[in-house]
Design a protein around this nucleic acid. Structure first.
Lengths: 233, 233
DNA sequence: AAGTGGTCTAGACCACGTA
DNA sequence: ACGTGGTCTAGACCACTTC
C-alpha cells in the first residue's frame, strides 16, 4: 500500500502534533530532545529536526538552543485575506475602474520614511500619489514609496496609464507583506480627493512589501467610509 | 566575521531570490536543476534543495518532479493575521486588562439577527454587551450574539468576571471564522462607552464563527481611533 | 563549560510526471 | 523509461544559551 510508516519527517510531525493536540504534552512543557526522539522513531536526527522545524514554523512549538523545545502556550489562530490588485478589486464589485496619476517624484528618503521602510536615510525613492475610481466614484487614494535600490527599473516608468500597484505585481515579486489597518479622520486633502467631508471616517490600509530581506514598497491606501475588508477562506 | 560564509542555504536562497527579483530569470522560466546549482555554489545538493524549498514556500518558485523548478508567474497573494483573545492582545501591549459586563440577556432571534447569523428567526440567543479596558482606558466595546442551539452551556454562564471571548475560546472551538473590517463614525452610545466624541472615527471588526456548519457566535468589536490591526508574518 | 538546536555534506534510494 | 525533485542517513562541526 502507500507505506507502512517508514520513518518520514511527515509522520513524525503528525505524531508530535497529535501529542500536542491531545495534551499528551501540556502547553508550555518541555518535550524530548532531537536525539531522544530520533531514537524513539528510529530515524536520523536530521529527520526529526525537519519535523520540529516545521512545527515551530506552524507555531505549535518554540525552540531555543540549549533550552530545548517547548509546546507553545497558546497556539495562534489565524485568518487570511487576499491581496488583490486594486483594479481587480473594483472589477469584482462589478464596477469599472479608472486610474488617475496625481504626482510622481524621485527623491531621497527622509528620516521618517527611511525608518518606516527599514532603509537608510538618503536612499533613492520614487514617490507616487494616485487615485482609483469605481464607476467614477473615488474608491482609493494611494500614496506610495518605491525603493529604487530594490526596483531600479521603476525609475524609468511613467505610471501615466498603468497604476504602480499593477506594475509592481508584474515587475517586482515580493515574498512578504506586512499590513496595518486603522480608522482615521479624513484630512483636508484626502477629503477633497475622495469627495467626502473633512473629518469623515476613512478606512486606511498600510502595506510594506519585501523581497526576502529587501524592502520594495510602502503604500498607504485610503478608502471612503463605505469600504469593507473581508477575509477570504 | 562578515566574510561570506561559504555555501549556506541562506546565502544560496538570497542569491536565487536576487536573480528572480532582478529578472535575471524571467517569470515562468525554468531555472537550473539542483545538481547544477549545487555545482555552481559548491554546495551539497541537500543544501540547494533546502534553499529552493523555502523559495517555493515563499511562493517565488514552483517545483515539479521531472518538470523542474520554474519562477512563479504571480507570487504571494495572501496575508494572515492572528486572532488573539482580547485579554492577550492587551497584555501584548504591556497593559493590564479589565473586563466589564454591560448587559446579558437571553432572547429569541429577530429577523435581521437571524439573517446575519444564518439561523432561523426565533432561535434562542444570548446577547451580551461588554467593555474591555487597557490600563483603564476603553479598548474595545463588544456586542455579541451567541447561538444557544450550538453552545447550550453558555446559558448557564454569567459572564460577570470571564469575558465571552475567553470563555468561548476555551469551551467552544471553532473551525471557521469570517471577518469584516470597516471604519465608521461613533454612535452616541459607542462614543459614551469608549470615552470619545460622537462622530469620531472608530475601527470596527465583525466576526462570525462556526463549528463546522453550525453558527456559534457573531460579534461586533468597536475600537477607538487609536487602534491598529497588524498582520503577523 | 556543556547541552541543545542549526546546518552542512556525501551518498543513496524513492516517487512522481513527463515524454 | 527516465530525469528531476523529495527524502533519508550517518557523521560532523558550529552557534547560541543557559548553567
Amino acid at each position: 500500500m502507500t507505506s507502512p510508516t517508514r520513518s518520514s519527517f511527515r509522520s513524525i510531525k503528525d505524531e508530535l502534533a497529535r501529542r500536542i493536540g491531545e495534551r499528551v504534552w501540556q502547553p508550555g512543557s518541555l518535550i524530548p530532545g532531537e536525539e531522544t526522539l530520533a531514537r524513539e522513531f528510529g530515524a536520523a536526527r536530521a529527520t526529526v529536526n525537519r519535523a520540529l522545524q516545521e512545527l515551530a514554523q506552524a507555531g505549535l512549538v518554540e525552540r531555543k538552543r540549549k533550552a530545548g523545545t517547548r509546546v507553545a502556550a497558546n497556539p495562534v489562530r489565524q485568518a487570511r485575506f487576499s491581496i488583490p490588485v486594486v483594479g481587480d478589486e473594483i472589477a469584482a464589485l462589478g464596477k469599472s475602474s479608472r486610474y488617475q496619476l496625481l504626482s510622481r517624484q524621485v527623491r531621497h528618503a527622509q528620516k521618517a520614511e527611511a525608518t518606516r521602510m527599514g532603509i537608510n536615510p538618503g536612499e533613492k525613492l520614487l514617490h507616487i500619489a494616485c487615485l482609483h475610481y469605481a464607476d467614477d466614484v473615488p474608491y482609493q487614494y494611494e500614496d506610495r514609496l518605491i525603493n529604487l535600490a530594490t526596483v531600479p527599473r521603476a525609475e524609468h516608468e511613467g505610471f501615466e496609464s498603468v497604476g504602480p500597484n499593477e506594475w509592481l505585481v508584474n515587475e517586482a515579486p515580493f515574498s512578504r507583506a506586512d499590513f496595518t489597518f486603522l480608522a482615521a479622520a479624513a484630512s483636508e486633502k484626502e477629503a477633497r480627493l475622495l469627495n467626502i467631508a473633512p473629518g469623515q471616517p476613512v478606512f486606511v490600509g498600510e502595506r510594506l512589501t519585501w523581497l526576502l530581506a529587501k524592502p520594495i514598497t510602502y503604500v498607504r491606501m485610503v478608502h471612503p467610509p463605505s469600504h469593507r475588508l473581508h477575509t477570504k477562506l
